[in-house]
Design a protein around this nucleic acid. Structure first.
Length: 514
RNA sequence: GGCCCGUUCGUCUAGGGGUUAGGACGCCAGGUUUUCAUCCUGGUAACACGGGUUCAAAUCCCGUACGGGCUGCCA
């Protein structure tokens, strides 16, 4: 394949939805697979929906995931500018060209008039108002109005839009890489607005002009664009660019975890799952969302998970680094059906990636979280901690929730274990254990184990009588890494403190409530 | 309503005329472990339905049902 030039073209209207992230990923993968170019283009032609900060959010998100941009705003490139608002003049020129060669016309109907017409049609029965070949002669445009009136309207202040004049009785054939041949009857198509009253193009025009000028080879986008693709092909044809038209690949949608419909930002809050890569601070809490990153997902895991939502390599390999993804990717292997978002699978990927991470890397990821809780352990301690805990967490914050006792000795003791295992007749034994450990040197796991087990056997006690109590006194819980290793890490003095405090507290817990 | 797209275990999917319909997540059971987790072994579970075509259909064709998308001077 020749070096592809692909673009990810989001609209800066807020946080970038996870579906958009996947679109970006697939574009990136195709580009890298064949040594091509990945372009970021900002589609900000709707000034009313523009949200400050959204562009930065998009760029930050791609960066977090490691999807580096070859050309784009801030990145430069020979086909810029890469913000459509900065290309405004260009579109007017091509719209004019379409008017001149009869493929487009001026439309003077105001938005209010159009709304009214839609309402009327709806009341008449079906909501089938379509500004098409059958309807345009009864609307106010340069096709239906006398030339003199058109002249007059154009030279007046009256705003106007430019519409694409859809030809009649044609079949538009789309050759979609994921869907095969898709046909549309031109008679079913409406005369889409291509240039708005404010002089800005709509998506349809801007998209075609930019893709052509930027020499885009593949348009990889969501399935929601399939219905308007016929318009796009007609536009290429009208502009005389059909020969070099990019090929299309329409991606299946990402669906809600339960129920049907496409995943929406609402689902995030409702189900407590992330649907955005990064957190987004909206004007209100309603418009703010927590991202994959803040949930504690590693970017590699989010990427791997997303890649498999709608694509798979055809082999049984599941774990893929970005580099491996680049080598294995192909558009032909993209599925047709919508893929449901499965948070359990995402978590499983995350767990796998956390385990695969080396302790030093993990320590630096976890450090800020621990610091936020008011603790600043040294690096060696933190690395050992991560090594001991990494097989027991799925999300990054679990390091704290499941391992807080490595840092704090304000423990929450497991009441059930205390109730069952803290027996009056064994109190002396535990006091002796504490005594034995007080002078143990070196204070190392193997040593500690020998000491405890030895004393245990001498007193004819079993593991079940001893270890749960020691474990709860040290960590508060019966869950966790090897207890002797925990003790070694915490050190002799700290263990003395915890044993003393634990045994005393157990007495209180067992005391009959007065 | 119209147009378009889709449909294999609960979920992500492999398989594209002849397979015991494969894998992964989840779930269940067992093993390992002082505990938890990891890990290992096993189990559960699917071709939406109806017609064709064919010696043979999950696979090709048509229809039905269901689901989804689009139907804006939004992208």
């Amino acid at each position: 394949m020749e070096k592809p030039r692909v673009r990810f073209a989001p609209s800066p209207t807020g946080a970038l939805h996870i579906g958009g992230v996947r679109t970006a990923l697939y574009n990136y993968l195709l580009a890298k697979r064949f040594n091509g170019t990945f372009i970021l283009r900002i589609e900000d032609t709707d000034q009313t929906r523009y949200v400050p900060g959204a562009e930065k959010y998009i760029i930050d998100s791609l960066e977090w995931l490691g999807l580096s941009i070859d050309e784009g705003p801030g990145q430069g490139g020979e086909y810029g500018p890469y913000r459509q608002s900065e290309r405004k003049a260009l579109y007017g020129k091509y719209a004019q060209q379409l008017i001149d060669n009869g493929h487009a016309y001026y439309a003077f109907d105001t938005p209010d008039e159009l709304d009214k017409r839609r309402e009327e049609e709806k009341e008449k029965g079906k909501h089938s108002f379509k500004y098409d070949a059958g309807m345009r002669m009864s609307m106010r445009n340069s096709l239906s109005l006398p030339a003199a009136e058109v002249e007059q309207l154009l030279s007046s202040e009256a705003p106007y839009a430019i519409r694409l004049k859809i030809p009649t009785d044609e079949v538009v054939l789309i050759n979609d890489i994921v869907r095969g041949e898709v046909r549309f009857q031109s008679n079913e198509l409406d005369d889409k607005i291509i240039l708005k009253g404010d002089g800005m193009p709509t998506y349809h025009l801007a998209n075609i002009v930019d893709d052509h000028l930027m020499k885009i080879s593949h348009v990889i986008r969501g399935e929601e664009w399939l219905p308007s693709t016929a318009h796009h092909i007609l536009l290429y044809r009208a502009l005389g660019w059909e020969e070099t038209m990019p090929v299309f690949a329409h991606l299946p949608l990402i669906l809600k975890p339960n129920g049907k419909g496409k995943l929406s930002k609402r689902d995030g809050d409702k189900l407590g799952i992330p649907v955005f890569p990064l957190s987004w601070e909206g004007a209100t809490e309603e418009e703010s969302f927590k991202g994959f990153r803040e949930f504690g997902f590693l970017p590699q895991a989010a990427l791997n998970f997303l890649a498999f939502l709608g694509w798979n390599p055809g082999t049984e390999q599941e774990m893929f680094s970005l580099t491996e993804l680049c080598e294995a990717f192909s558009l032909e292997k993209i599925g047709k059906a919508g893929a449901r978002f499965d948070i359990d699978k995402a978590k499983w990927f995350n767990q796998q990636y956390i385990i695969a991470q080396n302790n030093a890397t993990l320590a630096e990821m976890v450090r800020p979280m621990i610091a936020a809780k008011g603790f600043s352990p040294n690096t060696a301690f933190l690395q050992t901690f991560c090594g001991m805990m990494k097989e027991r967490v799925t999300l990054l914050p679990d390091f704290w929730t499941a391992g807080y006792y490595f840092f704090s000795n304000e423990l929450e003791y497991d009441a059930k274990t205390v109730r069952k295992k803290w027996k009056p007749e064994n109190k002396a034994f535990f006091a002796e254990i504490k005594q034995l450990l007080a002078s143990l040197d070196p204070f190392e796991a193997a040593n500690i184990k020998t000491t405890i087990v030895g004393h245990m056997e001498a007193n004819e006690l079993g593991f079940g009588d001893v270890l749960p109590i020691v474990r709860v006194a040290v960590s508060g819980t019966v869950k966790g890494p090897d207890i002797f290793e925990i003790m070694e890490l915490l050190g002799r003095e700290e263990i003395q403190v915890r044993l003393a405090k634990g045994f005393a507290t157990f007495d209180e817990m067992k005391a009959p409530s007065a």
